[in-house]
Computed example of a mutant assay.
Amino acid sequence: MASQIAPFSSQHLEAACRVLADTAQGLTGTQIGRLLQEVQVADSSPDMTKWKRLFNALAGAQNQHKVGNHLIMFINRAMNPVSYASNPGAFAWRRDELNVVLAFSGFYVREDGKVGYADKANTLDEARARAGRLKAALESRTVHAEVLNYCRAELMEENYFHAVFEATKGVAERIRQLSGLSGDGADLVNKAFAGQQPVLALKTLTSESEKSEQKGFANLLVGLFGAVRNPLAHAAKTNWPMSEQDALDILTLVSLIHRKLDGVTRLAAVPA
């Protein structure tokens, strides 16, 4: 990378700082302070909210030195893969979001955590596409976060077959977490949602319509496992082609299922 990088606009710098210091997925205040010290940037407002603190520090350095190098140096250190050995999901999220922001300035974060050059993006759709067309399409639909949690790496590689496989496996895992049950597939679904005493309920099950919805949801889950997850588990990728449109439709269905699971209530103890 060149010795001098043109200063970033305040909008681009702020967007990068909002990702790096995101409330839920970003760096901690302690990490921000340490990294600023490492890149020799004055921590001018340590008592402010995280993103404003980081923005003020980097903007101050940029104004003083008339270059944008300090943001790049900060990202290079913040995205060192060694720091994410126990939390690769955090690395993936930060890299994805930084790549959308940095695309507008002609940069991207590589797999090794270092910033490299890229063609500048002019639109949000173009910037999102840098993180993968399918992932961009899912985000435009506000897909449930649990979908991406289980197949983020596959989406980045546009590996549709395995993205769908991992996402459907994730549905079963979430049902196990919510219910305390073991097992898989139709057996797991029936124990969790079917019968007179289901472990999990979408609603109160006090009316016929609610009972009908519960039964329909269980059938939908069984169908997902039977028509999608099970064939993928037993078929070679070359024998089970997965188009981008098919993957988008299936993952959107998985997103709907996760939203339904968000509202379930655990009614019964796990059967012995």
Rank of each mutant, 00 (worst) to 15 (best):
P231T: 03
T123L: 09
A90G: 05
Y84W: 06
A16C: 13
Y84K: 01
T168R: 02
E213D: 15
A85T: 13
K135H: 10
L256K: 06
V100T: 12
V100F: 03
S182K: 15
A137K: 12
A92L: 10
Y117H: 11
P271N: 09
V270E: 05
F161K: 03
G223A: 08
D246C: 05
Q64H: 11
A269T: 13
A236K: 14
G89W: 07
S243N: 10
A129R: 13
T28G: 15
A92Y: 05
A78E: 05
L98W: 04
E158F: 05
S182F: 05
Q214E: 07
M73T: 12
G183D: 07
S44I: 13
G185T: 07
L200G: 02
P46W: 06
Q11P: 11
R176K: 15
N76M: 06
A2R: 14
T206P: 00
N80S: 12
S3P: 00
S83P: 01
D262I: 05
L178N: 02
Q214A: 06
L188T: 05
K52A: 12
L20T: 03
D125Y: 03
L232A: 11
L221D: 10
Q196F: 10
Q25L: 12
A103K: 07
E208W: 12
V228D: 04
R34W: 11
P271F: 08
T265A: 11
P7H: 10
D184H: 12
D249E: 12
F8R: 06
V19F: 01
T142A: 11
R176S: 02
A186V: 15
K237P: 00
N76R: 06
G116E: 13
L232P: 00
P231M: 07
R141P: 00
L248G: 03
G68I: 03
F74R: 01
Q177G: 00
D262W: 01
S140C: 02
M48H: 13
R174I: 09
P241M: 10
G68W: 06
